[in-house]
C-alpha cells in the first residue's frame, strides 16, 4: 500500500512537471545563467579556474536547489490541493519520500547539463575522465538536497513569509553539502585524482543524507499534523 501511494505521488509530480515544464526548465536556465555570470565574475577566459571548479559548481547547484525546492509544493499551494492529500490515509513520511524523489530527479536533470558545462567554462586541464566520479558524488549530494529540502519546504509551507524563510533555513543546511561536493569534485579534477579524499567526502555526503532521512522521518508527521 505504501509503495503504491509513493509511486502515485511521484508519478503525479512527474506528470505535472512534464505537462507544465515549470520547475526543471527554470532550474536549468537559472544554473546556466549563474555559470555565465560566474565566468564573467572570475575574469578573463585565459585563466585556468580548475582549482576553483568544485566551489563554482556546487555554489551554482546549491542556489539552483533553493529555486527547485521552493517550487516543490507550488501546485498543491496554488491549486489548493493540499487538503485533499492530507485528508487521505497517506503516511506523511510517504509524502516526504515522494517529494524527495521528485526533487532528486529534478536535481539530476539539472546536473546532466551543469556538470559538463562547468568543464567547458572553467577547466583547461583534465576533466572529462573525472566526470563519472563527479556524477557519483552529485547523486549522493542530491539525496542530501532532496531530503533536507523536502523537510524545510514542508516547514515553510505553512508560513506567510515562505519565500523568505525557505532560503534562510535551507541554505545553511546546504553548507556541508557544498563543502563535501566541492571537496569531492576538487579531489578528482586536475589530472591527479585523490580517490581516498574523494571517498571520504562521499562517505560524509552519505552520512549527511542518512541523518536528514532520520530527522525527516521523526519530524514530518508533526510538520503536517500540528
Amino acid at each position: 500500500m505504501r509503495r503504491r501511494q509513493l509511486m502515485a505521488l511521484v508519478r503525479k509530480d512527474l506528470r505535472l512537471e512534464l505537462r507544465t515544464r515549470e520547475t526543471i526548465v527554470a532550474m536549468v536556465l537559472f544554473a546556466i545563467v549563474m555559470l555565465v555570470i560566474l565566468q564573467f565574475g572570475f575574469g578573463t577566459r585565459d585563466d585556468d579556474l580548475t582549482r576553483f571548479v568544485g566551489g563554482l559548481m556546487w555554489v551554482t547547484l546549491a542556489f539552483t536547489a533553493v529555486l527547485g525546492v521552493g517550487r516543490s509544493y507550488v501546485a498543491e499551494r496554488e491549486q489548493h490541493v493540499l487538503d485533499g492529500l492530507l485528508a487521505s490515509p497517506v503516511p506523511r513520511t510517504v509524502m516526504l519520500g515522494a517529494k524527495a524523489i521528485a526533487i532528486f530527479l529534478y536535481m539530476t536533470a539539472v546536473e546532466v547539463v551543469v556538470i559538463p558545462l562547468v568543464g567547458v567554462f572553467f577547466v583547461k586541464g583534465s576533466y572529462w575522465d573525472a566526470i563519472g566520479w563527479i556524477a557519483i558524488a552529485a547523486l549522493l549530494a542530491n539525496a542530501c538536497i532532496a531530503l533536507s529540502g523536502t523537510l524545510f519546504s514542508g516547514l515553510a509551507l505553512f508560513t506567510r513569509a515562505r519565500d523568505l524563510i525557505l532560503p534562510v533555513l535551507f541554505l545553511p543546511a546546504l553548507v556541508p553539502v557544498v563543502v563535501a561536493g566541492a571537496g569531492a569534485t576538487h579531489a578528482v579534477v586536475g589530472g591527479s585524482p585523490d580517490m581516498s579524499e574523494w571517498r571520504g567526502y562521499c562517505l560524509f555526503l552519505l552520512a549527511y543524507a542518512i541523518l536528514f532521512a532520520l530527522v525527516s522521518i521523526a519530524t514530518y508527521d508533526a510538520v503536517f499534523d500540528d
Partner: peptide, 16 residues
C-alpha cells in the same frame, strides 16, 4: 480511509 471530504475547492490538480 473512511472519510469523504468535499471542500470549497475541488482538491484536484488543474494540470492533470
Amino acid at each position: 480511509a473512511g472519510i469523504g471530504y468535499l471542500a470549497h475547492d475541488p482538491l484536484v490538480y488543474l494540470d492533470l
